[in-house]
């Protein structure tokens, strides 16, 4: 048996380094017939807010070269429905579950955490300060260093749980943002959320996304994600959870070499729902080939 486990610190060990990316896997139950959800080391749920959000008007998605732009607007069922409808399924999973939270204010973040802290089975929180397509909250928290510092401090004071801050690539200096997160004692950063993107229909001259500008994801953004991870790895030593355009096992190895301790699969869940199986096979094969006893041996080992 090859050991794929990784240690995120704070006593949190995942069976393998592959998690799902928020907003691309629902709450796990939607896809359970198609994929064995327990094959993932962790599940990150769709961004959850205190109250339900209906999200943005259509059109919300468009295909672009090797990627897509989305403007979902954090549509989600809200905390109450999450507790009633999703918790019974999620709490039974073998995979560790991280709840991604989005909010319009510091208070809203803390209110959600207060309730979720009672759910002992939750492995940690991922804080979305990087959604590019909502008017309030979202990216506003993740692009201003002072705002990010205040929020991270406040969240740290409010919970002892494993706390991941999800960073936006839409900033000049992502390393600085990662540093702030570490200074405020969060447990990890995840990066990257989507990049700003737009597309226009040349016949009708209308934007292809209702909010005009949305978030770009998919294989097209992988090099951007890697560059950001390399920059952040140089200045922080808390774990980085790598996200952005991963579609195959080789991508996972590349992210880990760049400095990621674990990774998330996002858009690939749409165009290859069984990608997890191929990825785990690849990693096992790679470890065997390179005589690795643990994936720890490759984290951050790229010669950069």
């Amino acid at each position: 048996m090859i050991d794929l486990s990784i240690n995120l610190g704070k006593g949190l060990i995942l069976d393998n380094p592959i998690l799902t990316a928020s907003g691309t896997f629902g709450y796990g139950d939607e896809i359970a017939e198609v994929v064995d959800v327990n094959c993932f080391g962790g599940i990150v749920t769709k961004s959850l807010s205190l109250e339900p959000r209906i999200g943005n008007p259509p059109p919300r998605i468009v295909e672009t070269a090797a990627g897509m732009i989305n403007s979902i607007g954090l549509a989600n069922i809200g905390l109450d429905a999450f507790l009633k409808e999703k918790v019974p399924y999620l709490r039974e999973l073998k995979s560790r579950v991280f709840v991604n939270i989005a909010a319009r204010s510091e208070e809203e973040f803390c209110d959600v955490i207060k309730v979720l802290d009672r759910e002992k089975w939750i492995a940690g929180y991922e804080i979305n300060v990087s959604c590019p397509n909502v008017k309030e909250g979202g990216i506003a928290f993740g692009t201003n260093p002072n705002v990010l510092r205040r929020l991270t401090r406040k969240l740290r004071e409010s919970t002892d749980r494993f706390l991941i801050i999800k960073l936006s690539p839409n900033v000049t200096d992502i390393a600085r943002m990662a540093e702030i997160v570490q200074e405020c004692n969060a447990d990890a950063v995840s990066m990257i959320n989507t990049l700003y993107g737009a597309a226009i229909d040349i016949q009708t001259r209308k934007p292809k996304i209702n909010t005009v500008i949305g978030g770009l994801s998919g294989p097209a953004i992988k090099p951007v994600a890697l560059a950001h991870i390399i920059k952040a790895r140089k200045v922080i030593d808390i774990p980085i959870i790598g996200i952005g355009g991963i579609s195959a096992g080789a991508d996972v190895i590349e992210f880990m070499l760049a400095g990621a301790t674990a990774v998330q699969l996002g858009t690939v869940n749409f165009f290859n729902p069984g990608a997890i199986y191929e990825i785990l096979d690849f990693i096992e094969h790679y470890m065997d080939q390179h005589r690795l006893k643990s994936l720890n041996e490759i984290i951050g080992q790229a010669q950069v």
Binding site: G23, G26, I61, I72, N269, F270, P273
Partner: peptide, 11 residues
């Protein structure tokens, strides 16, 4: 994008 209710794109 997904056909499964994951992406919330097809509203």
């Amino acid at each position: 994008a997904c056909g499964l209710g994951l992406c919330q794109g097809c509203v």
